[in-house]
Design a protein around this nucleic acid. Structure first.
Length: 431
RNA sequence: GGAGACGUAUCGAAGUGGUCAUAACGAGCCUGACUCGAAAUCAGGUUGCCCCUCAAAAGGCACGUGGGUUCAAAUCCCACCGUCUCCGCCA
């Protein structure tokens, strides 16, 4: 959500930005909202003046009544009634205009950073950098579910029975591995100076509508029947929600938080859920990072955040690359976004394991998150979020890159203190 | 699930139809005085948003939210939301 004052003064920049995002159908909205805004401000001024008059007159009535000047009082009462009649219609218009303007402003995309590559859709995203050698071993790497099944690490049949497609039982060493990865991710971020949070896993509808668009809400969020509660799709929802409508003292910036939560997603409309395995599922766990900072610091944080994810994956010996989201693929609220992708030696390509976004002040403006500096001046901070790691998805990369030909799984150095072993071995009957 | 209480600024809290919401009173915070320095004391300042503006002033809105009554609502009426306390149940 951009500032309407900015739009008013720079309609060309806003239009240019819309074109860059290949959303030409929204171009007309710019002039439309400018006209509405002009009308709104004129109406508001008129309303404010009338209300001011009414307040002034109304106050004198009390005085007349006290002095017993009934006739005078009645005369002014009639005048006030006249003003109120005039106001009734105008106020209705004022409210309607305000609503219409907000509706449009929510749809106009945020101004993207100059550095964002121009492109229509995800096919034009740009590889930024590779880390590690994307090696392919000389044996055929099995499908991740098969790797897990061989060490008795997953039970999809039972999950289908209890919960349906899109759920899993992880068991034994693989379940432990997932917990260990999360614990390691937690400690990794704590060591980077982030504060660890375990947030609420359910949030109220007013928070949901604050942090996401209506369409996303329909397609992602599970609602608790009979309660005003939704299961979170990511801990970003509860973590950003906690700042809604607050004023943060500047001395408390930057807020650098890392949160753990299970995530629940309906994945409506994504065919990926049909695919066997744990790539796209209804329930997964994630370690997230959230930063609220001064505007001038946000780009620096942006680069730091995704490089933390890269560093994390590298300590687990997984080759990764960073892929910058092009203009057309960038969500409307975002200024800039980079995906971290892990190498799959089986598919011989990279696949998404995390996403780092700089939202500029758009999220702050929408949610009324403000910062107060030493002089009492208020401004909107920038917000960023990034995935540290989201097992089970990252398990795919982990297993494919660390499986041995005999089906055993190597545990990288960094995880050994957590796993308390350096290899997961195949049980006798599956050798 | 049952019973009760409450929702006003950073916090506690007064106000129960108008002339104290630029919100009493108390605390906190900021500035200044006193002091070698601090504490204590004294004086002043300290809500957010909108509109307008170079800036300020003036004006408008907000007493949980939304309606209603009224010339006028924090105050009266209705609905909803939330919080707390006790009891019950419970990891």
């Amino acid at each position: 959500m951009i500032d309407i004052k900015f739009l008013r003064e720079n309609p060309d920049i806003v239009k240019e930005n819309i074109k860059k995002k290949f959303q030409d159908e929204k171009l007309e909205l710019v002039d439309k909202v400018i006209a509405l805004d002009e009308k709104y401000r004129a109406t508001k001024l008129e309303c404010d003046t009338l209300r001011g008059e009414r307040n002034k007159k109304s106050k004198t009535i009390g005085g007349f009544m006290a002095k017993g000047q009934k006739d005078e009082a009645e005369k002014i009462k009639a005048e006030v009634n006249e003003i109120n009649a005039k106001l009734a219609e105008l106020e209705e218009l004022e409210v309607k205009l305000e609503g219409d303007i907000r509706e449009i402003m929510l749809v106009i995309p945020n101004i993207i950073d100059d550095s964002v590559p121009i492109g229509k859709d995800d096919s034009e995203n740009v590889e930024v950098e590779k880390f590690g050698e994307p090696a392919v071993p000389d044996f055929e790497v099995p499908y991740h579910v098969d790797i897990m099944e061989r060490v008795n690490g997953i039970d999809l049949d039972s999950a289908r029975k209890t919960s349906g497609n899109g759920f899993y039982y992880l068991c034994g060493d693989i379940a432990q591995l997932q917990s260990c990865i999360l614990s390691y991710a937690r400690d990794f971020m704590i060591d980077k100076g982030f504060i660890y949070y375990i947030p609420p896993f359910m949030i109220r509808s007013n928070v949901v509508t604050g942090v996401m668009s209506f369409d996303d809400m329909e397609n992602m969020m599970y609602k608790i029947e009979g309660e005003d509660l939704y299961l979170i799709g990511t801990s970003e929802h509860s973590m950003i929600g906690k700042f809604i409508d607050t004023i943060i003292p500047e001395s408390e910036l930057p807020q650098t938080l890392t949160s753990y939560s299970p995530c629940f997603r309906k994945e409506v409309g994504s065919r990926g859920i049909e695919e066997r395995g744990v790539y796209r599922i209804h329930q997964f766990e994630k370690q997230e990072m959230i930063v609220v900072c001064k505007p001038e610091d946000s780009m620096e944080w942006f680069h730091k955040l995704y490089s933390y994810t890269v560093e994390f994956f590298r300590t687990l010996d997984i080759p990764v690359r960073t892929l910058e989201c092009c203009s057309g693929d960038l969500a409307d609220l975002k200024v800039k976004s980079i995906d971290v992708e892990a190498w799959s030696p089986r598919q011989k390509k990279y696949f998404e394991v995390g996403s780092c976004s700089n939202l500029g002040d758009a999220q702050s403006r929408r949610l009324q998150i403000r910062v107060k500096d030493e002089n009492g001046k208020k401004y909107l901070p920038h917000t960023l979020n990034n995935t540290v790691v989201a097992p089970p998805r990252m398990l795919i990369a982990f297993l494919e890159n660390n499986v041995n030909e005999d089906g055993s799984i190597r545990i990288p150095e960094a995880l050994r203190p957590y796993m308390r072993k350096d290899i997961i071995t195949v049980p006798e009957n599956k050798k």
